[in-house]
Design a protein around this nucleic acid. Structure first.
Lengths: 188, 188
DNA sequence: ACAAGTGATGTCACCTGGTGACATCACCAT
DNA sequence: ATGGTGATGTCACCAGGTGACATCACTTGT
């Protein structure tokens, strides 16, 4: 036992998720989140750079795992094949947090500020995947296009997944979406 | 002549662009922008909902023109063909504002807040194009994938275009990028 | 065992973005 | 002239965010 209650970060995250869900993101104050966690506004800002970031802790981990999947794939894999591998890695992570995904997604969908933050996380992810593709000797344009296509497929698949009454696996949905994209691109 | 200096909005935009460029976005205060335009902080917020929006005035027009291009295309056009038509419409607009595009782009690239705003504008554009595709009887998934692919190609092409020493036409760059995307999707 | 850290937290003062309520003031229509 | 009307100014206020400094429980060197 330390001198303070442990897991301050986790307590702040729980408090924020609960309050954002109960009263809405904009109607919730950082001071209220901190109070609910038994802490201070100032301490909140020591753990999270701003009021939005508390919902996005762990996105770097996802990014690392998707990049690692690209790096670990066989040498002859095509660009979109590597994106498929990255999406499979994302699927593992998403299934782990399935129970929180719905509520969190609805909160984000309710606020423009939060959507903006989610989009820049996706852009960061795309940039990281593009770097990994360039390291594999793909050209700049191909790397950028394939990487952003990866986040496109991820988001489209994610939205189908969170609301799916059949609880279909994310991997399944994402693979189907990627196949559909290939189809679109080869048609016409 | 009116009772006030006319074009308050334009003056605010000019002042903001100049100050963001000279001193940086974060170091510039809304009060300073308003003062430079001979107005008040309160008036700034009557024209623009926030400090970021002053750089994005006119994005609805681009959105409308791209959607109109989709609606005006021949009935048998494929999904990516429609996206190509939308990109051609965007090209017209971009060439009109080429001289401002570079400075504006560098300002946006310098600030996370501004990048977030740009990304949500792109998301709004993608949603509008997806609606236009659904109105053409494309399925939800196809519409969402194709529309987001359109913004992907637009952004990748835009970045090549603004820094291009040869001043290549945006339309050319965008068409090449779209062709490359088709190539990626059909390979492997 | 005691002094000197160390690190997480609290306190306080402050700036800036953003908003609501109300006052002005030039022009316009009747 | 009289009473709108619409763009602007004034003022007070809240919340997000930050820097500087104080606390205080525990750790470490001697």
């Amino acid at each position: 036992m330390g001198r303070w209650q442990p897991d301050a970060r986790a307590r702040l995250q729980e408090a924020a998720l609960a309050l954002y869900g109960e009263r809405g993101y904009e109607e919730t104050t950082v001071a209220e989140i901190a109070e609910r966690a038994g802490l201070t506004k100032r301490t909140f800002f020591r753990y999270f750079t701003d009021k939005r970031e508390v919902l996005f802790w762990g996105s770097e981990l996802l990014e690392q795992q998707m990049v690692a999947a690209i790096e670990a794939a066989p040498a002859s894999t095509s660009a979109l094949g590597l994106i498929g591998a990255a999406l499979d890695a994302a699927a593992v992570r998403f299934e782990e947090v399935r129970e929180f995904a719905g509520p969190r997604h609805r909160i984000i969908a309710s606020s423009r500020e939060l959507q903006e933050r989610e989009l820049i996380k996706a852009a960061s992810l795309a940039a990281a995947m593009a770097r990994a593709l360039r390291a594999r000797r793909f050209g700049d344009t191909v790397a950028a296009l394939a990487a952003r296509t990866g986040t496109t497929v991820m988001h489209v698949a994610f939205e189908q997944w969170v609301d799916d009454p059949n609880q279909t696996a994310f991997q399944q949905i994402a693979r189907d979406a990627l196949a559909q994209l290939r189809e679109i691109a080869s048609t016409g």
